[in-house]
Amino acid sequence: MGAPHFKMSDLIRRHGIIVKSANFALYGDLSSRIVSILAGFTPRIEVYSIDESFLDLSGIENLRDHCRKIQETVIQWTGVPVSVGVGPTKTLAKLANRLAKKQGQVVILSTLAERETALKTTEINDVWGIGYRRSPMLLARGIQTAYQLTTVPEGWIRQKMGVTGLRTVRELKGQPCDDLEIEPVDKKTVCVSRSFGKTMTDQTTLAEAVATFADIAGSKIRKADLVAGRVVVFIESDRFQPNQPQYRNSAAIDFSPPRASALAIHKATQTCLNRIYREGIGYKRAGVYLLDLVKHDDAMRDLFSSEPPTSKDISKVTDQLNARFGAGTIAIGRIKRERTWYMRQDMLSPHYTTRWSDIPTCRS
Rank of each mutant, 00 (worst) to 15 (best):
2 G>M: 10
145 T>I: 00
142 G>S: 01
338 E>M: 12
95 L>G: 05
220 K>V: 01
40 G>E: 00
84 V>W: 12
157 I>M: 02
64 R>L: 05
304 F>M: 09
220 K>G: 02
83 S>R: 04
363 R>T: 12
26 L>S: 04
307 E>M: 08
242 P>S: 05
44 R>C: 02
146 A>G: 08
316 K>P: 04
147 Y>F: 10
224 A>L: 04
234 F>I: 04
182 I>C: 02
88 P>V: 03
117 T>N: 09
289 Y>W: 13
261 S>L: 01
95 L>V: 09
328 G>S: 05
304 F>V: 05
7 K>D: 04
154 E>W: 11
14 R>S: 09
84 V>H: 08
275 R>M: 07
105 Q>K: 14
320 Q>Y: 15
119 L>C: 00
298 D>N: 13
193 S>F: 15
345 Q>P: 12
76 Q>E: 15
152 V>I: 13
269 T>K: 09
342 Y>P: 01
321 L>P: 13
264 A>I: 07
207 A>P: 08
162 G>W: 10
326 G>E: 00
231 V>A: 09
46 E>A: 00
262 A>M: 10
184 P>V: 05
255 F>M: 03
354 T>Q: 01
24 F>P: 01
290 L>E: 00
168 T>I: 09
346 D>L: 10
142 G>T: 04
364 S>F: 14
156 W>A: 07
54 F>T: 01
241 Q>F: 11
288 V>M: 06
190 V>T: 11
277 Y>N: 06
264 A>T: 15
99 L>P: 04
256 S>V: 13
119 L>N: 05
151 T>A: 00
187 K>F: 08
161 M>R: 04
135 S>P: 14
120 K>G: 03
86 V>P: 09
126 D>E: 14
363 R>D: 03
352 Y>I: 08
25 A>M: 01
173 K>W: 03
59 G>F: 01
294 V>E: 05
115 R>T: 15
170 R>N: 07
